[in-house]
Structure formats: C-alpha cells, structure tokens
Design a protein around this nucleic acid. Structure first.
Length: 603
RNA sequence: GCCGACGUAGCUCAAUCGGCAGAGCACCCGCCUUGUAAGCGGGAGGUUACGAGUUCGAUUCUCGUCGUCGGCUCCA
C-alpha cells in the first residue's frame, strides 16, 4: 500500500514565497516610513501579513504605493542572505527596533519563539537580508526576490492587531497580502473569494428571507422571518426525534433568574463580562441567563437520585443571552440572543465514557445527514496559568478529567487535535470547528465535561454502597445554536436546502390565469399532506414566475397549463433545471414524501 | 472593547468642484393570456442612519452618537 505524504506547509515553496513577500512588503513600508517600527510578518493560510507600528494610519492609497514598490523590488533579483549571529550582535542590528529587541530577549532566554510559543531548546538567532531590508528571522526564504512573480501577489487589507495578540498591548497596523506561485493561482484564489461571498449567510439570509437585523431592535438580536421560522421548526423536530431515541428528557426553564443562582454556579465570578448586566427589583438582582445549566442542575437536585436513575439526560432548546463585545458580532454566526440545542447528562464516573461516546455518535449522525465532511474536532484543555482566573482552581480534577476525555476519544477512534488554554471555566471541551464561507472559523457543535459545578450545587446520587456521590455532568450541543446552525447551513448548502429543510417546498405555477384555481386546488391538496406549498398567481408570465421560484431556491416547481388542467396532472420542474412532464399529483406527492421522511439529500 | 473603512428608496447601486436626490429590481394599477430563468406601459416610494457645527446653501466639509463591514481580542 502506498502512503501519500503531504508536504508540510512550512517546508513548501508557497510558504517561502509568502514569507519572503512579507519581508519585501516590510522593506517597501519602511521606505515610506523610515522611522516605522517592524514587528512580525509570518505566512498564513492563503498569504501573509506584517504588523507595523507607524507614525500615522495607513490608507488604501498607501497600499497601492506599497504594492507598486514591491513589484519593483522583486524584479531586482535581490538575494536572501541568512546570517547566524549572537544575541548581542542582533541587539546592535536592531538597536532602534524595540519590538525586535523584545523578541531577541525572548529568544535569548530560550523560552519563546517570535509568536510567544514555548520552545523546547534555545533557538539559534538568525537574520535574513535582501536588498536594504534586514529582519530577525529563522526563515526559510526563497533564494532571491525574483522567485516571487510580480503578478502573483496582491495586498488585500489593512487591519488592527494587538502586539503579541494581547489586548492589553499596543494596537499595531497589519497589512494582509496574498501570494502564489504564479498569476493563474492568484486569479483562481481571487475568484474563489468572489464565489465565497455569494455563499455568505448574511447575503443569502436576506435574499432567501430567512432573517434580518434591525437597528432599533439591537445588534446581535436577529429577527427570524417566516422562512427562518420554518427551518428552526425543522431543526427542533430533528433534535427532539434524535434525543427522544437517545433517552433524553425534555425540560423548560425561565430566561431570568436571581443573582444567587449565578453566584453559586460560578458564572458571576468567571463569566460575568459575557452576561447582560442585572436588573434590580425590590432589592433583588435578576440576570438574563447566558446558559441553561444552572437551572438544569436545580431540576436534577429537585429529588433524591439513585445510581439506578443514572444517567439522567435533561434537554432543552433554551434561549440564552450573552453580551458579546460589539466588534465580535458576525451575522447569525455570532449573536447576542441564541437558542441552544442544549442538554446536560448527569452520570457516574463509570458511565462517563459510554455517555460521552453516545454524544459523539450523535454528532456523526448529524454530519452524515448534512453531508458535513470538512471539520476538525478540537479538545480544549486548561492552562495552569489560568487556574483561579479563567478556570476553576483544581488542577488535579482538570488533569483527571482531561485524561478521561482523551481516553474516551482514543478508545472510540475519534481523531482530534488538542489546544491548550481554551477550555470552559468548569472543564475541558470538545468543539467541532467549521469555517464560514469567507473563511472565518467557528465552533459548531460542542461537548463539555463539567467536574466542578455539580459539586457547587450539591448534586448527588446514592451509589450502590448507599453513600452520596457527586455526578459528572456532560454539557452538549450537537446542533449548536439555531443561529449558528442556520448560518452554517445557509453557507454549506449555498441556500439549496434539501426538501425537508426548505422553507417553501413546492411552488405551483399556473401558465395563464385560467389555471389559477386549479393551481390553488393543488396547493390545498399538498398542504393537506403537510407539504409547504404556494401558488404564484401574480400577473407575471410563466418564465418570470419560474425565475423568481429559482431565485428563492424552491426545490420543486409544478407548472400547470391547460393541458395539465384538463388531464388532472402536473409538470414537474426541479430546482436543478430538470423536468418531468405530465405526471399525476399522487406520483409527485409520493416522491416528495419519500424525500422528506428520509430527510434525503437528493431532490 | 480596540484599529481602520463605510452608512443614499424594501434590495443593489448612481449623483462632476458644496448648488432642484436618480436608475434597475421589488411593490401598486392597467394592458397582454402566455409552455420551463425577467412581456409592455404607468404610479407610488427619501428628514441622504441620527444629532450638532461651518456655509447664502451640506448627500458632499468638521465633530459626536448609533449601526454595518475588514481585522485583533473573544466565542455556540
């Protein structure tokens, strides 16, 4: 068996091109701002960036000037020369570059690389020079600037970025660029960006009348239009079906609770900045809930529990509110009001692995149903430095729980990657990471293990020996929130939803107004069967009616003219453009019902 | 929250140098009675996001507020 070895990005020609392009850009920028301070400029997924500290803000015109100058520099065929030097020498070279001096000190101590990641061994210090520009850099680079084709790169945007990614540090100016091996690759990439924009859920959401935002309602607070309402109903139906089969019990809890509950849960000490501020009545503070868990814990605690009752799985499509910072809002993907496909599983330690894998199995069923194949499972762990701040202060339990999750994933053969310092405050979590149409990352499904909060709520069950034991709690949301899920589905399907999920499943199109009544009769029969249908009896021509149904991405169009009316039949046009003439309504209904019942991908 | 850009009709976008705010689509009304992605004509629709300021005069220039977008930080 042959195994294909994928070339590491870090070792690829593309990586060198982008890294070198960043240096060339920095040279051009420094020519405009001789006193400008340079920081770091690494290659990224489709290009590169470089962060600068400059005396004034960059303008789009600057970008043009810089790009033009870069084209000249690459033509100069300047060699990239690497020199290994001592820390002291490096400090002399970068004497007036304070950010570089900071980096050199980090390297000298041997603790961290230029991005602040801890290093195993003390790295050597090297500089790269081409033409007039010298940078502290470990490479690698292309041999000379001419390896970068002058028509294969483009500067994309100016953005703010904190020095070392820390919001307490100074805000720098970042220039993003893209660079490729040749002009065709660049062209393809730019085309791909254009295509992605067409899939943007914010654009499709408006066009397909799924949701809107309104300034007077508030940022991050979506209004679901009737079409969006249908999708939500369908998603809830799906979740309830799956959860009922998996032994979940449905509960309902209020949107508002007293402060006491969130003090006990730990949300106020650890999560307060993401919560809406309290409202006070008669001396009592109330908070709008950012999560459902504390209420579910109360339900668990509402009566004595035996080991025989476990696991107990409490599910609720709960509405939560979180005060996301204004700049973090992003269409439906990041909002302030959301409905979570939430549930909490209370179980004994010996049941943990089975329950945990049960949740993962649910993920896989959903992935299969939606045809999701591009995703990454991330196991988010705590960081020692955050204990008592971001994280509940009990390192022993952190390590133990993280091990349990790892073991469960390994035993179940689920591939995943580990990320430090991204856990929930009460325990490690598994996120399913996905990408929006324009390439932004999001966590969709999530699954978190809580070893801390049950104890705070005095949750207990009586074990076989008759002693009290604290249950573990698994928080899970395989379908994420309605908001993020619908946003994701819009982009995933580019609005071409499978029949079961389509807000409007059938549009009946009479050719002349002589068939209006016949068309409306068909709609009545379809609705009788639980099918979402409407008739287009506007004063437009058939072609225009078809066009508007196509634009709304309605899966089935039934065209009815005099022939169909007289024969009691319909002519089916499918969203993909195919058609099937003169079929009976019963035949069409049978086809549809089959697709809907199976939640089939095909039309 | 931070850095930057932007905000004109329901939507997509025009408006020269500071001088009467416009088009297409959608909507309403008529005509056409039509065979698989836009038939024709007419009508209505605006405090140019909001609030100040400069000016004889502001969509245009300045400041503030709100919102959106591109990032950073953060997250379902």
């Amino acid at each position: 068996m042959s195994q294909q070895v994928q070339e590491k990005y870090e070792e690829s020609q593309l990586y060198k091109i982008r890294h070198s392009a960043a240096h060339i850009m920095a040279q051009a920028v420094l020519e405009i701002f001789p006193d400008g301070k340079v920081t770091i400029g690494p290659p990224v997924e489709n290009g590169f960036y470089y962060d600068f500290d400059l005396p004034r803000n960059l303008t789009p015109e600057d970008l043009e000037t810089i790009e033009k100058r870069m084209r000249q520099i690459v033509q100069g065929k300047h060699e990239f020369k690497k020199t290994v030097i001592s820390a002291d020498e490096a400090k002399k070279v970068f004497a007036n570059q304070p950010y570089k001096l900071e980096l050199i000190e980090g390297l000298e101590k041997g603790g961290f690389d230029e991005y602040g990641n801890p290093l195993k061994e003390k790295p050597e210090i090297s500089i790269y020079q081409h033409d007039t520009f010298v940078d502290l850099c470990r490479g690698p680079h292309v041999a000379n600037t001419k390896e970068i084709k002058q028509d294969a790169f483009k500067l994309m945007s100016i953005a703010g970025a904190y020095w070392r990614g820390d919001e307490h540090n100074k805000m720098l100016q970042r220039i993003y660029g893209t660079a490729w091996e040749n002009a065709q690759q660049l062209k393809d990439y730019l085309l791909q960006l254009e295509e992605a924009k067409k899939r943007d859920h914010r654009k499709l959401g408006r066009e397909l009348e799924i949701f809107i935002f309104d300034d007077e309602v508030g940022p991050g607070l979506p209004l679901w239009l009737p079409n969006g309402g249908v999708m939500i109903e369908e998603l809830e139906k799906l979740a309830k079906e799956m959860e009922e089969k998996a032994g979940y019990l449905r509960v309902r809890t209020p949107n508002l609770t007293k402060e006491d509950l969130f003090i006990r849960s730990g949300h106020l000490p650890y999560y307060a900045e993401s919560m809406y501020p309290p409202m006070e009545l008669e001396g009592v503070k109330y908070y709008v809930k950012p999560m459902n868990c504390p209420m579910h814990h109360k339900i668990f605690a509402s009566k004595g529990r035996s080991y025989r009752d476990l696991p107990i799985r409490l599910a609720e499509y709960g509405t939560c509110y979180r005060y996301e910072k204004s700049g973090e809002l992003f269409g439906l993907m990041r909002v302030r009001s959301m409905q979570m496909n939430d549930a909490h599983i209370y179980c004994g330690e010996d049941q943990f692995e089975q329950e945990f894998m049960g949740v993962i199995a649910l993920y896989h069923k959903y992935f299969e149903l939606f045809g999701i194949d591009k995703y990454v499972m991330r196991l988010s762990l705590h960081a020692k430095s955050g204990l008592g701040k971001k994280y509940v202060d009990n390192q022993r339990l952190w390590l133990k729980t993280e091990d349990m999750v790892r073991r469960a994933m390994d035993n179940g053969g689920v591939p995943y990657m580990e990320v430090a310092d991204e856990a929930a405050f009460y325990g490690p979590k598994i996120d399913v990471q996905i990408w929006s149409a324009i390439g932004r990352e999001f966590s969709l499904a999530t699954n978190q293990v809580d070893f801390a909060v049950p104890e705070r709520f005095d949750l207990k069950f009586t074990n076989k020996e008759g002693a009290d034991e604290i249950p573990l709690c698994i928080h899970r949301a395989p379908l994420s929130t309605h908001e993020r899920m619908v946003g994701f589905l819009l982009e995933h399907y580019a609005g071409n939803f499978p029949v079961w999920l389509s807000p409007e499943q059938v549009r009946v199109i009479p050719i002349t107004d002589g068939q209006n009544e016949y068309a409306q009769g068909i709609v009545r029969q379809l609705r009788e069967q639980g099918i979402r249908a409407s008739a287009d009896i506007s004063a437009q021509r058939m072609n225009a009616k078809i066009r508007s149904a196509q634009l709304m991405k309605v899966p089935y169009m039934l065209v009815v003219g005099e022939n169909e009316m007289n024969a009691g039949q319909v002519s089916l046009r499918v969203r993909d453009g195919s058609q099937q003439n003169n079929i009976s309504l019963a035949e069409f209904i049978a086809r549809m019902k089959d697709r809907i019942e199976r939640r089939a991908k095909e039309l």
